[in-house]
Every structure is written in C-alpha cells, then in structure tokens.
Design a protein around this nucleic acid. Structure first.
Lengths: 212, 212, 212, 212
DNA sequence: TATGAATGAGTCTTCATTCAT
DNA sequence: TATGAATGAAGACTCATTCAT
C-alpha cells in the first residue's frame, strides 16, 4: 500500500524527467523544474538518483542495452545462416523480418530512443549511434567472408553502415506508429541491401584488374 | 586606420566564438569566455552583436544562405536540362560535377557547417537540415515531371531525400580534406541516384496494377 | 542475542563516525556517508543518537572526562606532597612518572583526542584545550603556595601553562607510538618545569625591589 | 569619482568577508551572507573574485607572504652575525628586537593572521603553521653550525621550534594590543632561547661519552 | 528497534545581459 | 566605440533531520 505511493513518486519523477528531457534536451532540462512538475522536492530526486546523469541513464540505459543485445544475438544467428551460402544470388533478399523485429523493440521504448537521438548531448550517450554504425560496419563483412570470389570494400562498408543506421533513425524520428514504421522501413531496407551487395562486395577479378 | 583596429576586434570575436561554439556547443559556450579569449570586454561584444544568437548567426548565416542559393540555382538549371529528356535511360548517371560543386562550397566554410550540424541546438538553426531535405524532396519529382509513363512515390521521395542529405552530412562530419570528400562522395551519390530511379520513379502501368 | 546485533550496529556506527570525523572534520563529515559506510540506515542513527553533535560526543566525551578526572586527582595528590616542601631546591625535578601516566591514558583513546584537537570545530568541544590550560594555570600556583619567600607571576603562569599544554599537543599529534611519545615527552617536560620555577616563581625580595 | 565607488564595493566585500570568515570559519561562511552584508549581489562577488577560496586568499595571502619574506631575510642576516661567534657565551641573549619586529608586522595584519590560525580549515592555508615550524627548525641549527664543540639534537630542535611558534600563536590569539603583545613576548622568548641552548645544543664530549 | 522516503533550506557557482561612463 | 562593474535568476547538488510505518 505504502509501497505503491513510494514507487509512484519514483515513477512520476522518471515520467516528468522524460518529458522535460525531450522538450529541452539534457542540458537545458532543469532538475528543479522536473521536481516541481512531479510534485516532489529536490531532495527526493537525489534520494532516488545520484545525479542528473543517472536520472537520464535510468530512462535510457535499459532500452539501449536491450537493443545492443538484440543486435549482437541477431548477427550471431545470421552468421550461421550465411555460412552455408556461397554465391551472391543465393542470398535471401527479403530482410523484412529482421527489420520488423528491431522496429518492434525500439518502438516499445520509443521515448527512450528519441531521447538518445535528440537529447543526449553532454551525456555519455551522445555518441551512442556511432557504436551501432561500427557494429554493422564490421558485422556485414564478417558474414560475407564465406563468399568465394568476393572481397569487401572497407570504405563503402563504412558508408553503407552509416546510411543504413541513418535510415532507421529517420524512421524512428518521424513516424510515430510502429506498424507504419515497419511498413515504411521494408522497401528502404531492401534498397540498402542491394547497396551492400553492389557497392561493398567487389568481385575479386575486378579487384585484381584494378591493382594490375 | 582606426576602423582597422575595430574590425580586427570584431574579427577576433568571431574567430574565438567559432572555436568556443565548436568545442562546447551553442548552449554551453560562454560569452564571457569568448570575450576573454578574444581579449575583448563583454561590453564590446554587445556593441558588435545584439546578443548570443546574433553572434552565432554572424558565423553561420552567410554560408547557409550561400548554400541555399547554390542549390536553388542548381535545381533551376537541372530542370531545364531535364525538360529535354523523356526516358529514364537518357538520364545522365554521372552526377560527380554537381556533388563536387556542393562539397567545394561547403568545405570553403566547413567550420560554419560543422557548427550548424553539431552545435546549433537551441538556435533557430537547429532544424536547418530539414529544410534541405524538403528542398530535395520536392525538387526531384518536379524535375522528373516531364517523364512520360512514370509517377513519383511521394513517400520514397521523402526517404531518398533524407538518405541523400545524410550521406552528405556523414562526409562533411568525418572527412576533413575537401578533395578526399569529393572522391568519397561520388560513388555514394551514384548509388543514391540509382535509388531515386528505382524506388521513387514508378512505372504507371505498375502503379495501376497495384491500385487495381 | 538480539541485543548483540543491535549493539554491533551502534558500535559500527561509532567506529565509522570516528573515521569520517577524522578524515573530514566535524562539519564536513556527512551523516549519510557514515550510515552508508556502517551499513546502517539514516533512521537507525537517529535511534541511537539524538543528532550529529551527540554522535560526536559519544566518541569524545568519555575520554575527555576521564582525562579531566585524572588531572584533578593528580593535582590533589601533588598538592599534598608539595605541602611538605618549603624550598625550591627540595622539589623533585623528575616528572617523568606523571608525564608517562597522562600519555598512557591519552594514547589509550588517541583517536578521540586527535578528534578533539583537529576536528571539533563548531562543536561544544572546540575550545576544550583552554580548559586544560586554565586548570594547569591555576593548579601550579596553588601547589606552590606553601613555599615561603616566593610569589607567583600570574601572567607567566598563564603562558607556561599554555606552553606546557602545547607541548603535549605536539607530541600527541605527531607521534603515533605511546612509548615513543613518553620517551620524547620527558626531556621536554623537565625543561618546562625549569621554566615554571625560573619564570613563574618570583623571590619576594626581588619582587619588592621591583615594586619599590 | 566613480572609481571610488567601485573600489569601495570591492573593499566592502573584503571587509565583510573577513568578518564572516572570522565568525564562522572558512567552511561555514556563506558567500550569500557576505554579499548581503556588503550590500552586493552574488554576481558582483564573482566579478571581483574567482572563487570562495580566492576571496579568502585575497585577505590572507599578502600578509602571509610578507611574514615569510621577513623571516627569510631575518635568518639570512642573523646567519652573518652568528658566523663571527664561536662560543655559546658570546651569543647575545636579548632577542627583544627580533621578537618586536615580527609582532609589529603581524599586528599590522592581525585579522589576517587570526584568520589563518583559526579559520583556514579546508583551505590551502590550513597547514601554514607547519611551514614556519619547519623554517625555524632548520634555520637555528644552521646558524649554530659555526660553533665548535657542539652539535644539534635534531629532535629537540624540532620540538623547540614547535614550542617557539606556539608561543607566538598564543600571544597573537589572546592579546589584542600590539604593544602589550611585544611586552609579553620578550620574557617568553628569552626563556625559549635558553631552551634552544640547553636542549638543542649538545657538547660534543658529552655526545661522544654517550656513544662510547 | 529500524526503515527509508521525503523535506526544504542551504551550498557555491555561472550566465546572458545591461548601462552609466 | 568601448569599458567593466553589477545584476539577479538560475544551475546542480548536499545536508541534517523527521516520521509514518
């Protein structure tokens, strides 16, 4: 009974913090203001959270780790599938399922991800996007490594990774409904996959000619 | 003669402001600090500029307008060229020249554009990127309007515009040298143009089938 | 059985408080911190102690009263011995035993005394040293009162008392080992006793001359 | 004319700060309070001084450096005088002049020194007394080095230095009038000098006996 | 006995801006 | 043109203490 009340205050605080951070960004968000809006004294906030940063982390860290985990796991599974494939033509061009899954997860915590994308300046999270770019940049070439006769162009791999992540970010930022987001993401992703195959995968003959 | 001295102070102020804004972002940048670094009193700053925002604008507004103008003019010229083209196959697939020109201009004022991209939070410029997306999003379909048998998918046009702009931003952010930037941009742009043609331009028959 | 546990908490609290007070001084010591270090909740602290000052007192008051008692008793005994002495020459110049006894007691509670000396600002104890100076300042002349032909210079008595106490304080502060402290204190004390006799005890003739 | 007003505010600030620091000690002194008492806004304080610490330093640093300089210079001169002396008996036992000079200087800035002695906890100055002890501890033996047949007992030198400084501190703390302070200091200093000669200077024969 | 959530006044400090000179 | 003193609100954060449970 009392616990309900107590938890309610903590939850209240998180909820108002989320709103304030979204509206003003991390820096301009005012703890005083958050407390006032949550009907709580400043001291109370510092009972629940060590810091402004920790309050932000509370909102954002869980979903971020979750997504990270999801991606790692997904790449692992994908690697296994790919290990049985030898030519470009055998690659399944439909990546809707994967795309859907990521969107699904992200939209369960959309506020948090919007926060990370738009309002995490001066936070340890301010470069969190780079991490995902890097993961993608390294994962794809690895998955392709079994394909005979092709090598990866590292530079294009980097840029395709960037573009791919940017595509997700655009969707997350501008589409509110998860189902619509999924629907919109699918054709874009297919286009991007083609990019990976056309620009990143280089026929080795071609490559040798160049070097020659 | 005296004017020289004065102008020097103004110039000094702008130079230090640029550095401070780049290092700390608009919000965290301190006018006091800027003045101190420039060897100028706070009062002096307020003689030259109305306030913090106007100081920021001084650095950023010129290049921004310049780029805007360049783009508008370019689209106008391109429209004329395109008006003589009737089929997709006739389109010149090499857009290196255009890409080069934009990069060239941007890199003449790279500091300013980096400022706009990374440090314009809480400024009227904070959404300036959207404007360019919008320009592109609308311009391309217009240019294509002469092409018989095709219509534009508005939605994909939006996303391709976004991706295209993002591609430029990635390059600007991460590559310091103008020539290298041009070189890297070309293949990416070509890939993107293919995207425009494949995803945005829809054969009308196809379209009718779908709708049927 | 349960009492054991409780007492353990109290004891824990005192122990951590001692450390915290020593490290940060009375003011900067944080009750929160003390509780955390002791693995106890803030509420618990307030069950055992009325407030911050009383927690400090708990550590410090016992030893302080003990020392006070020891000194009073010692002066009483010394007075009796001195009542049988009529000339300066008969005074026992070796005060090692007394010095040793005080050092012995103080070093049994050295932490507490260090606390009193270094970390009692803004406490009722912050001037506790003065009390000892005063005791000494008054006791010595009283003990000497039986000596015919001499009077006490009140002013010099005050300063010698101060110097004597300061000498003890220096030792307590800077020497950790009790035995070494005793050893170091002895020659200093003998020098100080000579000071008492030379500066404080004034031959009455001399005195009359002066006044004449 | 305006300058008068401006300087007055700064001076006012320093004056009130001095009072506040004296009354409450460095930590408990409140900048808000100081500003209010000085009839100045908080911002103003931070125009004149970088910090709480710097405000404190402003009051205290000058006098401290002055005293340090005075002592260094004095020791240098004394060394020259002593270099012409070979036996203990030739030493001038009257050190009134020196004592007077130090007291004179200190009492010109007595507030500052009281601050240093009583209210500098948690400041870089909190151990400033030790420095003077050390200077004295090292200087005296050096000055005595010319004396044949004697060596210095390092330990007693340390304690005599401590006692000597403590004696000064007692006077400064408890006597308000400079002239009275001088008068009181003289006999004490003479007593202390005797201590230096008796306890610190050891006849080498004696020393050798001991070692034998 | 003991918890731990909550208080609320208080801390030092920073800032963009103003204005008499 | 330019100074620089001064403003005053706001910032994050800390603290000893209380009290219903």
């Amino acid at each position: 009974m009392k616990q309900d009340v107590e938890y309610k205050k903590r939850e209240q605080l998180i909820e108002t913090a989320k709103r304030e951070f979204l509206e003003k960004g991390y820096n301009k968000a005012s703890l005083r203001n958050i407390c006032a809006r949550a009907g709580v004294t400043t001291g109370a906030l510092y009972f629940f959270f060590k810091n402004k940063e920790e309050l932000f982390a509370e909102i954002v860290d869980g979903p971020l780790r979750g997504l990270r985990g999801l991606i790692v796991q997904h790449f692992r599974e994908d690697s296994e599938v790919m290990s049985g494939i030898a030519t470009l033509n055998d690659i399944d061009m439909d990546h809707s399922n994967e795309s859907d899954m990521f969107i699904e997860y992200i939209y369960c915590h959309r506020d948090s991800f919007i926060l990370l994308l738009n309002s995490s300046e001066n936070t340890v999270y301010e470069n969190c996007v780079d991490e995902f770019v890097e993961m993608l940049e390294k994962a794809v070439p690895m998955m392709m490594s079994g394909m005979k006769g092709y090598t990866c162009d590292a530079y294009m791999s980097h840029w395709m990774a960037h573009l791919t992540i940017d595509a997700f970010i655009n969707v997350i930022r501008h589409i509110e409904d998860a189902e619509e987001a999924k629907r919109r993401m699918r054709p874009i992703l297919n286009y991007l996959v083609k990019g990976w195959l056309d620009l990143v995968m280089v026929e080795e003959k071609h490559e040798q000619k160049r070097e020659a």
